[in-house]
Structures are given as C-alpha cells and as structure tokens.
Simulated assay, not measured.
Amino acid sequence: MQFRDIIGHQEVKKHLLNSVKNNRVSHAQLFLGPEGSGSLALAIAYAQYVNCENKQPDDSCGACSSCHKYQKLIHPDLHFSYPYYTSKDISVAVDVVQDWRKAISNNPYLGFNHWREQLDSGNKQANIPIKEVHDILKKLSLKAFEAEYKVLIMWLPEYLDKEGNALLKLIEEPPAKTLFILVAENQEKILNTIISRTQLIKINKIGHEEMKNYLVAHQQVDATVANEIAFIADGNVQEALNLLSAQEQNSNFATFVEWMRNVVTDNGYNILNQSEDILSKLGRENQKSFLLYAINMFRQIILIQQGLRSLVFLKEAELKFVDRFSELYQFEQLTEAIILLEKAHYGIERNGNPKILFLDLSLQLVLLFKYQTFPKGTQYI
C-alpha cells in the first residue's frame, strides 16, 4: 500500500512523511477516523514507508524487497491484530490471517461488518481476547527479522476491553525500533490508559468530490450515479462499495418521497403497507442504504436552513423537495428525525426485524412531525 493509492488526506500524508524524514517516529500512534475513511490504509502505507529501502520524497518506492512484501502483506516484521471469533481451531488473530490479507487486498477501506461476513461467526461475539494480547507481547519481544522497524497494526482496539491493560507497559516502553499503530473509529470505546500513551493522528471522512472522483476513476461508475452514491455514503468508501453492489439505489428518492408523504399526512394504512411491501423487502444492504439516504436527505435539509446551499449536492428534483421540506419543520424536529433513522440503521445492522423497525420508525416520525412542537423563540438553523 502506497500513499498515492489512498484517496485524499493530503495533510495527514504530509505529516506522516515529515515524521519519518525528521526522525520523529512516535513508537505508539492512534489513527482515529470514521469507518471507510482510509485510516487503516494510511497506517499500512505509513508502515511501508518507514521500512522502505529506497524512500522517495513523497512515497515509498514500491519496488524494493520490503515494499514488495508489504504490498502482499507478508513482510515478516509486519504484524496485524484485529477482532475475530475464537473457536477450537482459532485462538489468535494469525489463525485467520489469510482471510485478513484477502479482505484488505480486496478493500483497504474495510468496515467491520464486511470483515465479519468474511468469517464464520455463528452467534459469537468478535473481540481481541487475552490470548491475542499474549501473542502480541511474544511477537514484539523478538528482534526484527530484516526491517529497521517491527510494526504491529491493531485494527479496532475498541474490541480489546480490559485485556488491553496487559499491553500498557509494551505501549509505554516498547523494544527499540518498534512501531505500534492503533487504528480506531470510536475513541470513547478505547481504554483511557491506552489513549494517554499514544500520539493521536486524526483522520477525517473523505470529501464528496474526492469520493465521486474515486468512483468514476477506479470503479468505472457514471458521474451522475457516482455523485448520488458519494452523497449517500457520506465519506465512507466501504458504504460506497456496498451501494455499488446493491441494485436498488436509483429508487431511493421515489421511495423516500412516498414515505415522507405518508408520514406527514399520517396515512396509517399506507405506512403499514409500505413498511411491509416495500421497505421491509428491500434486502438488508438496500435497507441500510435507504436509511443512509434518508439520513443524508435530512442533513441536506438542515444545510438549506443554515443557508449553506453551496454544500448541498443534489439533483434538481431532490433539491426542490429539500427546499419545500426545509420550510415546514424546526431544526429540533429534523435532528431528532436523524437520531431515529440512525437507531433504525443500527437495528438493521444487528439483524432486527425490518418490518417492525420500519413501522416503528414511521410512527415515531409521525409523532415527531405532526404533534411535537417547540417553544417560540427556539433558534432555527
């Protein structure tokens, strides 16, 4: 993985390059960014640059022995740790490393649910157990085989739980020339004792135009479709790839308008039918993409209310709808609607009953838009 292969993040790349050039490589770093932002890809590209035998001014060479092994994720001094499911045959992360390498090679913007689908999970809970922690301690206590730095990249340390305390001494006082990179999405779920011992590298979500250009150039997507997918994915490359594999994205707007019409008019009969006949039968990925589309439509409505029309990326019909809707409801109602949609999205991800989820969501939106009011003087966006 090279920096040039990663979408955007020019300032982060520059910072990482300079840290190596100035010999200021922190031994423990936390790459913090939302799902699909490329934080894992950046960590791999950074590790490859650190150990490149012929560093270029703005990237690794891609041609030396070290780079070749990094590109295949088989360098003996590159180690990975990640959530997985234990079983009789699987006790540490390296037991599923072939699945991991295949998943990352296919998609370096990997999301947790996509990774989970690559494994035989059953009803188990993924985590990074104490056996894996002990294996990390063992691996990093050894000398490097051939590279200048031993590197361990831990993806989603949120799944460490209290077992992570066993790593504190290693993180604080690692062996010489050891690089420990944590790649996380939610800082609140990481042990504070770990956070305090790392250097934070904050990674933002990918911009709309960067996402659109990536889809056109690398996924051969029509510019109009790419614009819509970039809008729905909202900076998440994993979600954009999910949408590409889905077949229903073109009907999202029509379905959304019909749904909102039923909600606003409190048409219980149509809401019940739509929840049963349309929304609940889309298929899980299409249900998730529809809810993400709805969330982003409400965000665009808020942007219109804020007067930030230049940040709104919509087709003409969608823009007309957003303009009308923005005049009808208060900011508090719109933000509460987004919260309800996000909860429903979470429920779908956890395999909740779609018919019940969509019906419950619709009825809550009816109550929110038709009956919930706010005091006069409430500040509008």
Results as ranks from 00 to 15, higher is better:
E173M: 09
Q29G: 02
P157S: 11
T255F: 13
I304P: 00
I271L: 14
T373F: 13
P157Q: 09
F290S: 05
S196C: 07
F290C: 06
N18I: 06
F369N: 00
Q238I: 01
L78Y: 11
N262A: 02
Q118Y: 00
E342T: 10
D89Q: 14
K150N: 08
A240P: 03
V312C: 09
M1G: 15
S26I: 02
I232G: 07
I7P: 07
D222A: 07
V97W: 01
K102S: 14
D161T: 11
Q333I: 01
K320E: 15
Y109W: 07
H79E: 08
L110R: 06
T198V: 02
I381E: 14
R24T: 04
A93Q: 12
V96Q: 05
L160V: 12
T198D: 01
R299A: 07
Y380C: 09
E349N: 14
Q330D: 15
S60Y: 04
L167V: 06
R24H: 12
E318F: 01
E239G: 10
N236A: 11
K69G: 05
V264E: 12
S60E: 05
H15E: 14
Q10D: 12
K131V: 05
I104D: 07
E146G: 09
F31D: 02
N123K: 13
A254E: 15
S39E: 11
S196W: 05
S60H: 08
H345K: 14
K14G: 02
